[in-house]
Design a protein around this nucleic acid. Structure first.
Lengths: 224, 224
DNA sequence: AAACTACATAATGTCAACATTATTCTGCTG
DNA sequence: CAGCAGAATAATGTTGACATTATGTAGTTT
């Protein structure tokens, strides 16, 4: 027989996902994928039935989503998918830009050699995606890249906020146009960010990191 | 008899506070006042009994507090009052400073004459409090002042974040020393913020507003 | 026909009971 | 006496029922 894989202690970490977390992820996914329109009410009973749980976990999950800005609860009336005005979206871009700048600053201060090499690898891979014209892949890598920067910064709360605001932005269901050269341009900014982090230039990293996100906002405005 | 006060429609807005909101405020107050030590577990059953409600609302309130960063939930174990390391606190100060800068920038762009006169009045009143040596009153006014700036900015999400982070900071139960001249110094910064807003100098407002909060962080560091 | 009332329906608010998982205590074993 | 196994206890997880409020509908009045 194969060796028994020591099931004394490692088993602890399993089974740690309550229904609330499950429902929370499911709801978040539905909202972010746009399967429930903005402004629409989330029917507790329907959702509970649909997900095969009772209303309790659904209600708790909704409270959780509330503080993340994805839904809004009205007493005695229900929870509604948050509707984002253009002004709201622009404000979110600004906030996210500021936090991204902070994350880049911190990363420039404290990135390890491993952090730097990882980040550089991301830029290279995004370059390859641009050459191949693979937009889908570029988006994935872009997301992972910014997450990696946030991790390298060591600023855990800021990273959480950055991620959370990123989800919130998606409430505005606009695909920012990604005309031909814009991907290459975007990645050249990534390169400048990484270069600043590599040489530990805090100011430059913060400035470029923030501007990178402001440029995203400007592209959104051009789209309209 | 006195005129009946038209109880046809105005009654609508009342009675809109569910138990969840009530419990939420109660819990938040207990945590912020330090009545439950950091790291301590919140016992659902005890709290429910103590507040005279069932566990349902308590659990929902806890989920709400979770996303605000005041508590941390561990599956099958309970919710714990979040414990803040010094690094965490410093990071919060930085984040808050950045957001405050943004709020001041926006306020400088869009403050109405009424906004400006209100803000100026706050500075004057804080000046009076400083002269009277009334620290308690100064703190209240200081809080209201920054809230007023946030409102004047028109940036609703940023204001919420600013307020939320403010509560989170209080998890670190340190009274920043307020030696004699520091209050006057602090209010002179308020004056510079308001002056920048009055003349619509965005850059100056943002810079001074952020620096004002960074100075608070520095004072915290000196306290240690 | 417009509008108001009363009733019927459906959803959210709240609770108490039961199920599952952690924790503590006890007693046994070496 | 240290350490481990197992029961007893206590807490959280989940559910279904009931209470209250909002919504929709039919009927009546003017």
């Amino acid at each position: 027989m194969e060796a028994d894989q020591d099931m004394r202690k490692p088993m602890q970490k399993l089974r740690q996902r309550s229904l609330v977390l499950e429902v929370r992820d499911a709801l978040e996914g539905m909202i972010l994928r746009g399967e429930v329109p903005a402004g629409e009410r989330l029917n507790e009973i329907n959702l509970a039935e649909q997900l095969g749980v009772s209303r309790g976990p659904v209600r708790e999950a909704a409270r959780s989503l509330e503080r993340e800005g994805l839904v809004k609860t009205v007493t005695n009336q229900g929870v509604y998918v948050r509707k984002l005005s253009l002004e709201d979206a622009l404000e979110l871009y600004d906030l996210r830009a500021g936090i991204a700048g902070y994350l880049c600053t911190r990363a420039a201060e404290s990135a390890t050699p491993e952090d730097k090499s990882d980040l550089r690898a991301f830029v290279d891979r995004m370059d390859a995606a641009v050459r191949d014209g693979d937009e889908e892949r570029y988006f994935e890598l872009n997301l992972a890249f910014h997450d990696r920067v946030a991790t390298a910064s060591g600023a855990t709360r800021a990273k959480d906020l950055y991620t959370s605001l990123g989800k919130e932005v998606r409430l505005m269901r606009l695909r920012v146009l990604t005309g031909g050269a814009s991907l290459a341009l975007s990645n050249s900014e990534h390169d400048r960010i990484v270069r600043a982090i590599e040489i530990g230039d805090k100011e430059a990293a913060g400035k470029v990191g923030a501007q990178h996100h402001i440029n995203g906002k400007l592209r959104l405005l051009e789209t309209l």
